[in-house]
């Protein structure tokens, strides 16, 4: 039993840690897709977030801001993510480009632009390492709870707590506020929303920019807590995994949380499984592909049917039926 608990001590914090960037990014995807705009560009938004997170941490460090640097950089990364998402918004909402194609282009652009800038600034393919990453902390009082305190509240990143808070906030906003109702109506039935006086395209712009902010946050959190620097390979598929979490979580914030934690678990197990007797013989590949296979099964309806907003992927044309 002790061995079991101590392996959980290892696995649970690792899963939460791996899930955190996915939660932020998938919440962003949720806001955008709830408003009817597919966001394949989450990966690119994470790339821009990771890039700005690292670059601005380095800049703030050079100003002598010390441990506050990564936190300020997170805010900047959110802003840059929101601005960068405008490419997707303008192309797919105003110019009625195919949302998927536009998202693909956004991913290309993010990698190209960020690595180009890194080469111009640093003269090499990746940035320097940051001096003040965000460290793990124990949460006072809660960390002292036996067993559970060890799993959830000790040696945890503050960013993980913030992610959990945002899950609740996004859930409240989307399902309990007039703004959320408008957002969802635009994604389900834009014509009806328009008739009721909701500015459809404005709502979509807001949603896409919010997804940019969250995606930027997700990328920056990953870069600041995990990689410590930025290069072309820093973000390699986390954005698409966030998209998977969004679908597997059935476009619901708590579903997304569960999916992200589960994917985080699979990810962390793929690294730590060697140390756990029961799992040491499972080929790593099964854990690596688990999130993707499960998402396909969920879409196919084998693990509870996942159905997106009705008007997802369609540009809204006033007066069309």
């Amino acid at each position: 039993m002790d061995a079991f608990i101590s392996s959980l001590n290892l696995i649970i914090p690792a899963a939460i840690f791996a899930a955190t960037p996915l939660i932020f990014t998938a919440l962003g995807g949720l806001l955008s897709e709830r408003a009817g705009v597919v966001n394949i560009g989450l990966e690119g938004l994470m790339v821009m977030g990771a890039f700005s997170g690292i670059v601005f941490t380095l800049i703030f460090e050079s100003f002598g801001l010390g441990a506050a640097s990564p936190w300020l950089a997170l805010v900047v990364a959110m802003l840059i993510g929101a601005v960068f998402s405008l490419f997707h918004a303008v192309a797919s909402i105003t110019l009625r480009a195919d949302q998927i194609v536009s998202g693909v282009a956004l991913n290309f652009l993010a990698v190209g632009l960020s690595v180009f800038l890194v080469r111009e600034f640093f003269g090499k393919g990746q940035t320097d390492y940051i001096q003040f990453p965000i460290y793990r902390t124990n949460i006072p009082l809660l960390a002292d709870i036996p067993v559970i305190g060890g799993w959830f509240f000790s040696r945890i990143y503050a960013t993980s707590i913030i992610a959990l808070v945002f899950v609740v906030i996004v859930w409240y906003v989307v399902f309990k506020t007039p703004f959320g109702l408008r957002l969802r109506s635009v994604g389900e039935h834009p014509t009806a929303a328009d008739t009721m006086g909701i500015k459809v395209n404005r709502m979509k712009y807001i949603a896409v920019m919010l997804s940019g902010a969250f995606g930027g946050m997700g990328g920056a959190v990953y870069a600041i807590t995990t990689s410590g620097n930025f290069g072309g390979g820093t973000i390699a598929g986390q954005g698409f995994m966030a998209l998977a979490a969004l679908v597997f979580g059935k476009w619901n914030p708590f579903g997304v949380l569960g999916a992200a934690l589960f994917f985080g678990l699979a990810q962390s197990l793929s690294i730590t499984a060697q140390q756990i007797p029961a799992l040491a013989n499972v080929p790593q590949v099964y854990l690596l592909i688990a999130p993707y296979v499960l998402t396909i099964l969920a879409l196919a309806g084998f693990v509870g049917k996942a159905e997106g907003p009705k008007a997802l992927g369609k540009a809204y044309e006033k007066g069309s039926r």
Partner: peptide, 21 residues
Amino acid sequence: APELVEIVIALIIFFVASSYF
């Protein structure tokens, strides 16, 4: 930096995709 090319390609896709305009 060679990534300039990636930027140009990405922008070309954006422009083609937005050809409606």
